[in-house]
Structures are given as C-alpha cells and as structure tokens.
Write a protein that binds this DNA or RNA. Structure first.
Lengths: 124, 124
DNA sequence: ACTTGCCTTGGAGTTGACTCCAAGCATTAA
DNA sequence: TTAATGCTTGGAGTCAACTCCAAGGCAAGT
C-alpha cells in the first residue's frame, strides 16, 4: 500500500507519516524498486498503534524507545513491557484527572441551569 | 496576593500568569498603587479554574470566550453555559477514548506477561 | 516526446503555548 | 545613597510537533 492510501485510511497526512518514520516512531517502511514506500500489513499496524497512542498523549519519547527495543528482538520483552506499564500508569492518572474535571463541569453546567431559571446572584 | 505567591500556590510560573492575563484567559488583575498585580480571592479562583481546565485540554479559545462573556454580566448566562456544554462534550469524547486505550494497554501488558513466561513467537 | 501525477529527500517554515529578556520603577536593607 | 529584590511592560526567543517546499525520479497517458 502506498503512502497516499495509508494517509487516507488513517487520516494522517503523508508528511506526518514520513515524519513519524524519520524520528523512529514507526519502524522503517520498505521501498519498492523505485524507492517508493510500500506499507505492509505490519506497517499499517504500527501506524494505527502509533496514531492511537499519540492521540491519547503517550510520550513520543517512550514510543520511540519501544519501537527501538522491538527491533532488537525477543531479548527486550521485559524492557518493552516496562515502557508500556510506565505509559499506562501515566495515562491512568490523566484519565482520572479528566474524569474529575468532567464531574466539575457537569456541576457547573447544572449551576448555570439554576442561574438561568432564577437569575440569581452571579457565579463564576 | 502578589504574583510570586500565586505562582507558588498553583505551580504556574509568573510569566505564564501574565501571559494568561494578556490573552484574556483570566480577567485583568487589579494593580496596587505601584502598578503591581494584587490578586483577589476571585482572581485566584480564575487561576485555579483555568489551570484545571487547561490541564485536561479544554481549548484556550473556548476559555477566552467564556471569560469575555463572564465580564459582560448576566445577559450572557446562556452563551456561557453553551461553551461549557460544548467543552464538556469534547472532554467526554477524549475521556472515553482514553478509557479504551487504557484497556488496550492493559491487554498488551498482559500479553507481554504471557510472552515473557513462554518466549512464544513475537507480537507487536 | 511531453505532460501529469505521485513519489522521494533534506531542509526550511509554521503554530501554539509558553518562556525569557531588557529597561525601568518602588521599596527595603546596609 | 547605593545595592538588592521584586515587580512592570512590550517584544523577542524557544520548543515540540508537525507542515510545507524545492528539486528531482519514475511511469502511465496522449
């Protein structure tokens, strides 16, 4: 699959795909005889994974390290898992913060309902 | 309360506090006779609110609009509530995405446990 | 044979959100 | 009265993460 199709499939610009490869966020994609990238299913898997993880804010640094270790083979399983655990824990913290803030916003919106109903003294 | 103390209290640099005020993310803070910012309790409330909301990714644009409307008084209650609802809905979507990705990471970490236990064929 | 279209690369440019800096004014300490 | 501290402002600088650009290769269509 060529870059334009991958770009469309995952809604990531060709420039960004090339950029991700350049910095090692996804492994190097094979080129065909003309030097054009030809994405395998595995490459697509990496693109999807990266997009998903970046989307929720996993660190580029951690993901690059993960790809690097992956390419070194089976001896790096533990190290790779550690990165995932570290990133997962960070994500958990952020998710919990968001959950709390979501509640706070729900409350605030409810207060606005009351304010609008009664035009009582202002509230920030 | 002066800027240094506010900075420490909320762990936001003085430069950032001035920047937030400059772009309208918090309302203008009163200056004392020497032109020095003197934060009231209400100002502190804004700083805390802004920090909390920015922390979970609410748009600067929405928050600026909110502050703007707030300063126009009671006639803008509905418009302000709409902004909060819009931002809340966005936040909900992001939180849900994070929850799903968290699950995915948990699974992946579990798979690594199995791989490490058995050194079976590699898995990305 | 030439144009069109999609790709390549290295490198420069952009954007958002800060972060730093220089010049200058009050207040307090020595 | 000089020095140090902490603030002010407008504007410049930084950084991450893209995003764009120029110059050029290959191949299919006319």
């Amino acid at each position: 699959m060529m870059i334009a199709e991958v770009s469309e499939k995952f809604n990531v610009s060709p420039d960004t795909l090339r950029y991700y490869e350049r910095i090692g966020l996804i492994p190097r994609v094979n080129r065909n005889k003309n030097g054009v990238r030809d994405y395998t299913e595995e490459d697509l898997g990496w693109v999807e994974f990266t997009k998903c993880m970046r989307n929720v804010g996993l660190s580029i640094e951690g993901l690059i390290k993960y790809v690097e270790l992956f390419q070194q083979g089976d001896t790096t399983l533990e190290a790779r898992q550690e990165i995932l655990i570290e990133e997962r824990d960070q994500l958990r913290i952020r998710t919990e913060e968001m959950r709390k803030t979501l509640e706070r916003l729900d409350n605030k919106i409810e207060i606005y309902n009351e304010l609008i109903a009664g035009r009582e003294p202002k509230r920030n």
